[in-house]
């Protein structure tokens, strides 16, 4: 809960002072023989009210300002549209190449850069995703745990666009990505987006573990397959004899994913435009209300309060400057 607090609330013992302008005038009172000689005037009456309010406001605002008001920090629940998404991004060396399988030259983009660029746009949109990022090559790297901090996620994607290293060890990457979904928050919609340009054989032991993990986490799986020109398509069935996980790892990974029993979709992308289209589709599919909490920091409120006090005092000063000075009497008071 967000609540107001004060550093030195003792100062409020002086609060009755704020009522003083109701009884005292900021201007010097001039005695007049008969107030009835003064014509009724609405503008004057309005100014009188404004000055009273300004007087009360000035004292009250100064008191509040001196008391040091702040808004307490708290965990705030928000409801947004989106999902809890873990991006599992291939950081292997092949991601440094462009879709044609060569080192990018001129204004060409590497696959990693093309994919992360699209993902950054995705995260920067109006969605309220909780996202985590895991990179993997030979071994997985936890980049950002599941969070709603856009800057962190953006930075993670920016980092993923840097040139990668080594091989593709998809199994351990999946294991780490699945481990990031915490078991207790089962109410959320969860998705795992795998971005890779290739596949690898998953150890059969690990396969059983992964099956269990997928069931437990209950995630929907999207595979954004960045196909390099000339590589086999996911659904190409090689001639018999070559249909082994070692010869066609992508096809067998696809088959493995299909056998998980969880919602699964694979997207093949051969150009940045196709990556974009695929991510748009994921965007459409992963739209569900998501409840997430944010830490609102403690906020100092004295600036607006002092600003109010300054404005009120300014009004009073203007009134004082506009005051007609009492004429000097000859021979003093009599």
């Amino acid at each position: 809960m967000i609540a107001l607090g004060f550093d030195t609330p003792d100062i409020f013992w002086l609060a009755p002072l704020a009522a003083a302008p109701l009884a005292f005038s900021p201007l010097r009172i001039r005695k007049t023989a008969a107030i009835a000689a003064v014509p009724e005037d609405r503008l004057s009456a309005a100014i009188a009210v404004v000055l009273r309010i300004a007087g009360c406001a000035a004292i009250a605002a100064l008191l509040v300002g001196v008391a040091g008001p702040y808004r307490t920090g708290a965990l705030v629940d928000h409801i947004g549209e989106g999902a809890e998404i873990v991006f599992l991004i291939d950081r292997s060396a092949s991601m440094n190449e462009n879709f044609a399988g060569r080192a990018p030259s001129g204004d060409e983009q590497s696959k990693a850069r093309a994919a992360t660029q699209v993902l950054r746009d995705f995260v920067a949109g109006p969605r309220k995703d909780l996202a985590g990022v895991v990179g993997f090559s030979t071994s997985p790297m936890l980049v950002v745990p599941i969070t709603d901090r856009r800057e962190a996620i953006q930075a993670a994607f920016a980092a993923a666009a840097r040139p990668g290293l080594d091989h593709t060890n998809i199994g351990r990457g999946l294991a780490m990505a699945l481990a990031m979904f915490r078991a207790d928050e089962s109410g959320r919609s969860r998705a795992l987006v795998l971005v890779s340009d290739g596949a690898a054989v998953i150890d059969p032991h690990l396969q059983t573990d992964l099956r269990a993990d997928f069931k437990k986490a209950g995630v929907r799986l999207y595979w954004l397959f960045l196909r390099t020109e000339g590589n086999a398509r996911l659904h190409d069935i090689p001639e018999s004899g070559a249909d082994t996980p070692q010869a066609a790892p992508e096809r067998h990974l696809d088959l493995f994913f299909q056998s998980l029993g969880q919602p699964y979709r694979a997207f093949e992308a051969e150009s940045p435009e196709q990556v974009h289209a695929a991510v748009e589709q994921i965007d459409r599919l992963e739209r569900r209300p998501v409840l997430f909490t944010e830490i609102a920091p403690r906020q100092d409120l004295s600036t607006p309060v002092f600003t109010l006090a300054v404005l009120a005092i300014l009004v009073l000063t203007l009134a004082k400057l506009a005051e007609i000075p009492a004429p000097v009497r000859r021979g003093g008071a009599s």
């Binding site: 007049t32 107030i35 003064v38 503008l43 100014i47 009188a48 506009a322």
Partner: peptide, 21 residues
């Protein structure tokens, strides 16, 4: 006077009135 603010008080009833001349 022509211009300015005056806080007037009645000498008998004590009633106060601000006047913007």
């Amino acid at each position: 006077p022509d211009w300015g603010l005056m806080a007037l008080a009645d000498s008998e009833s004590g009633e106060r009135r601000l006047v913007f001349m």
